[in-house]
Design a protein around this nucleic acid. Structure first.
Lengths: 206, 206, 206, 206
DNA sequence: CATGAATGAGGGTTCATTCAT
DNA sequence: AATGAATGAACCCTCATTCAT
């Protein structure tokens, strides 16, 4: 499966696919699915229109591939963080750190990803919604089970674990969204501890 | 300003404009900006296509008017809640309750509103972002100033007020989004206190 | 149902539809279904492309309407001739005369019609084949029943009526095709009696 | 002319050309000129697309070669039958038998052939019409001269020999077309004598 | 020499917008 | 003033053809 072991032709093909996806990503995240034409994508990637269709059956397919590739990687990382055998608070801290790292590492796609999971996306007819939501729901469920374990161990207060997960997701997303919009102002290295602290301790003076 | 003081003709025109916006809202929130045609909007509102152009210069304009009308009302309500002269925690509770009430009262619009403020909406090329973000930023700033006041009064811990605002926004949005997707499962009457509690107290056992 | 009783707007619409069909007919019968673009049809009829789609859902639809309109009229006339209560040979003579009259009266469409019934047409995916063949088979069946009646009355020799019908169809089509190709050389007024005579009497000296 | 006298390389090339034509024939007669792509033809013949262009300048060229090869063979057989030195009625019977044999032996091609000679084929823009029609007209002319001879010998009635040829062509084509469409129902062994009989004797009781 | 990846013109179709009625 | 027929630019996609390997 190592890319380097593939024949030269295959490697070349993969490279071109990547280029195409990169071009599409740039354009989609600049202007959105409906404001980008296949011609533009082809031009940006320095291909002819026809060539794009060698790699993707149609525009929807290309978009899906783009989103799902990011989503799959994103969720893989998050689940890995949640699978660690550590104390609950550490797991959560690592989870949030991992989430931040992915966002910071692959910024542009995430705008699209958020649009698909959190916003009202009407980009493509159907199917993507289902696929991507399923992935996302898995992560939230796993996160909830971490909270459930924390509650059982009396580390956390007796609150609904699912809603604790939703709350953490909401807070972290909000911060990451700030960072996406203005990376310079909202240094994520200092914010991540802040958000965790707020979440863990609350805001009231005790 | 009072509608009743306008000549009958003018009142009639305003009514028609409202009908048009209502029809457009329904359709946009069902299918998204790009999957709704001017013809459909006109038909739903029982007008001719040409008539729509008497009220709005073009499709983008109509969409902007729609979003901005919703946003303006939404922000008016939120700011009113924040302007109340009460103890800080009460102000926040009222703010969140007001936010929830608007969402629960006018569900369809909010999907569009969230798409524009929190998601990556690319419905229209530009301009809307600016206008609507300005409104939204005002609310967040005012919310932050409530937090600042709370910190000063030592009701809240010494955290960055802006990030406290972001955190509260993120949490409440996440919950409201759950409710939007599945109003039956996520009864907002019980969730709103839960989210406030989590935000105020944190999740750790003290 | 009289065209003149329709409102002016409706009459106008019908006129335009006719113009469109006429333009399409010209082009299709010059160059064939696949060598004519919707743009060309629109231009020939002096409309914009979009207008064509007000009258016909798509290219296939337009083509079908064209063929079926001709076919329906053609078959109406033929069946009328076959329904006459006369002696069998007269019925056949009238049938052939009617057929010739339709061909002579509406030449260009008939090339397309023949292509659909007798040739190997792959113009459109399906459906037309079925519809038009059903009409055609009805005519042949009715023609066969005329022959059956002639055989019963001993006017005709004891041959398979269906094949007699096929034979007459084949002969008349061949002559009409000659006429279509070169109307001047093959005057149909003299040929129709010739073909009937050959068919009735055979070619051998008795 | 003898294939075996050619160098091995040339023989190989001819073989490949045949394979290509065979593949193209299958596809064209299944789906029609415009519904078959060069890629499909190449694949069916197990060549690369580029290779097809070594044998044929373009798609039209390939189609022309296909039709003309079929037509040439077909006409060779028909002319051979007509060249026999026998009594006129025998020549005609043999001619029709030969025609039937070719059709029955090589069904798929004939659909295309009929489309080109008798129907309204618009597969390719021009040129083919001329070439193939010339061949066909030669056959009809020769057939007519057989009839002329029969008239002179008073075997046939004094009718226009050309129209007698057209009539015979029309009848036989109609029957062969029936057979092409439904070989099981229309056994050609019994039909050919029937059609000849009808043609020779007519249908009236004498 | 054979290959098939790459090209891009051109096809069918939609829909925001205009304007004569 | 309201209408909706007409417009045509622009979209997605296919496929005959070419040419570097």
């Amino acid at each position: 499966m190592d890319v380097k072991t593939l024949p030269r032709r295959e490697r070349e093909k993969l490279r071109q696919r990547e280029d195409l996806l990169a071009a599409a990503l740039e354009l989609f995240s600049e202007s959105g699915y409906h404001n980008v034409s296949m011609r533009e994508i082809a031009q940006r990637a320095e291909f002819a229109v026809g060539t794009v269709y060698k790699f993707f059956r149609n525009k929807e397919d290309l978009y899906k591939a783009l989103i799902m590739a990011t989503a799959a990687e994103y969720h893989r990382v998050l689940k890995a963080a949640l699978d660690e055998q550590k104390e609950v608070p550490s797991v959560l801290r690592d989870y949030v750190a991992a989430k931040a790292a992915v966002v910071v590492g692959g910024a542009p796609t995430l705008r699209l990803y958020f649009a698909e999971t959190r916003g009202a996306s009407f980009n493509i007819k159907a199917g993507l919604d289902q696929d991507i939501r399923k992935l996302y729901d898995e992560v939230v469920a796993q996160l909830a089970s971490v909270f459930a374990s924390g509650v059982k161990k009396k580390v956390f207060r007796k609150l609904d674990p699912y809603y604790m997960a939703v709350a953490l997701e909401g807070m972290t997303n909000a911060f990451l969204f700030c960072w996406l919009e203005n990376p310079k102002r909202h240094s994520y290295e200092t914010n991540i501890p802040t958000v965790m602290d707020m979440f863990m301790e609350g805001v009231l003076v005790k």
